[in-house]
Amino acid sequence: MTVWGMVWMQILERQCKVLELTQLGCGDWTMTLESQGLAEQVAAPGQFLHLKCGPGQLLRRPISICNWSARRDLIRLVFSVRGEGTAWLSQRQVGESLDVLGPLGKGFSMKSGASYLLVGGGIGVPPLLGCAVQGGGACTAVLGFRSARQAMLLEEFGQACPGGVRLATDDGSLGHHGFVDALVAQELESHPGLYAGVLACGPKPMLRAVASVCARYEVDCQVSLEERMGCGVGACLVCACPTVDGGYAHVCKDGPVFPAQEVDWNA
């Protein structure tokens, strides 16, 4: 008996073979998995996979889907080494299999063919590539990094974003010297009505600033949030995100993508 009838939303647990694993110039890692049917279940960019990271790590690690191909049964992840789990992941060999649960969560809601302003910061950048490639509309990207050395995926964003790629770095070593929200304000100011919405992923202070700019220009804004996670499927309730109604939503099931106006930014 299955209560969850809709095939396109099915969550699978599969052993997925690593087809490619290389370190990017910025130090982060790009991994392509033979998805064993998971790619076909991806409903939207911004969803994530939950990966077992070796016998020493009890919990899985959630990693955003960077891009996918249902036809070729591939899923690409881009991740940074933050602790023991992701360090283990970066040491896998091509041909090894990983225990993968997914696709999980609610991704970015995109109207087919519409133009979006994609705003990414640091390791929040990769899922926006999926938005640019799979969204079907002419997107523009605003990407922020600590410095030029951390910049990633610029060429691919260049190819996927007809509206161009604008860059910001905290130290001014590449593009605008400062944060992405200034560039977001410029874009919305100079192209009123062009964007169906702003899709953002990155550190919470960045998201808060972007959400505030969007509210000022009355542009729809969706943000992808992070929180320490347990089960990944909505059962254990640990990945709580404070919401404006005074309660909590859960990043793994209600998110990771939320309408910016539902998030309690002051909590």
Binding site: E227, R228, M229, V238, C239, A240, Y248
Partner: peptide, 10 residues
């Protein structure tokens, strides 16, 4: 409504 996050540590 439960406790504020983070609610889990490995």
């Amino acid at each position: 409504k439960g406790n504020p996050p983070p609610r889990i540590a490995e």
